[in-house]
């Protein structure tokens, strides 16, 4: 037997465990990723869109589609990182069981975040296929939303893990969803353009990580990246790194007793 396992092996096995479980429910999971954005696209993109004037020369459905891809990413990662991870941390004792093996706390955190990124990238793929079917994806650059989905998913998952590490019950997540996730969904330029909003609102939106993810997604799907896009991507990367570092700290404090 080799002396011990590497960091990456441990992290990959933790992600692998979640993948093994998910494969058993993959159909239901894909249906969730597929159904909800589809309903939004029909009701808002085409229903509401009939009375909305074009935005920057785009129909409302064309405007909405790239943002639906990444709002799915946010919700997928956030649900998994709160309710899913909290169940593994507490009731199921999954992390406790893993900690009896050579896998370390840092490997668990890394593996979990890796998993959050993968699951989110899968969600992004499903929505991309849906909006492509509606003819709303003009550029091949849109394939870039898969790595974007992974990165943003990892970021939102790490943010959610911070909440999980602090939480004493499932109810605690209501604060997070009501005070951060829902406002982010509504005010990050998913449903209306931030350009033209009052300057204070515009500035406030820049604080919300989803704003930057939406900006990158729109540039990729429309096939019009610019230096601004690179800037937004850098912000996402920075937020992801910060959230991961914090999640690792908080979870270590919670697990190492």
């Amino acid at each position: 037997m080799t002396a011990s396992t590497s960091f990456l092996h441990g992290a990959a096995r933790v992600a692998g465990r979640n993948l093994t479980v998910w494969r058993r429910y993959a159909a239901a999971s894909a249906l969730g990723n597929f159904g909800e954005p589809l309903l939004y696209l029909i009701a808002l993109g085409y229903g509401l869109g009939r009375v909305v004037p074009p935005i920057d020369g785009l129909s409302y459905a064309e405007f909405l589609a790239p943002a639906l891809i990444v709002s799915t990413v946010m919700y997928t990662a956030t649900f998994e990182g709160t309710f899913g991870a909290y169940t593994r941390l507490t009731t199921q004792g999954t992390f406790e069981a893993i900690l009896a093996t050579p896998v370390t706390i840092s490997e668990i955190v890394t593996g979990e975040i890796l998993w959050g990124g993968l699951k989110s990238a899968f969600g992004a793929t499903v929505v991309l296929v849906v909006v492509r079917a509606f003819g709303l994806v003009p550029s091949w650059l849109a394939l870039g939303v898969l790595p974007l989905g992974f990165l943003a998913g990892a970021m939102f998952y790490a943010m959610a893990l911070c909440m999980t590490a602090l939480s004493k019950s499932y109810e605690f997540f209501n604060y997070y969803f009501t005070l951060l996730v829902a406002p982010m969904y509504l005010f990050s330029g998913v449903f209306f353009p931030l350009e033209g909003a009052p300057p204070w609102a515009h500035r406030l939106a820049q604080v919300l990580p989803l704003t930057h993810v939406v900006a990158v997604s729109r540039a990729l799907v429309r096939g019009q990246p610019s230096w601004h896009t690179v800037g937004h991507a850098a912000v996402v990367l920075g937020c992801a790194a910060a959230a991961m570092a914090l999640a690792a700290r908080l979870l270590r404090r919670r697990l190492q007793i």
Partner: peptide, 21 residues
Amino acid sequence: NLDPDLPVIDNLLVYGSYFPQ
């Protein structure tokens, strides 16, 4: 703290995957 998300055999296989074997 068996893994309720996995059947009996997978509980062993997944747990074994955490070891260098």
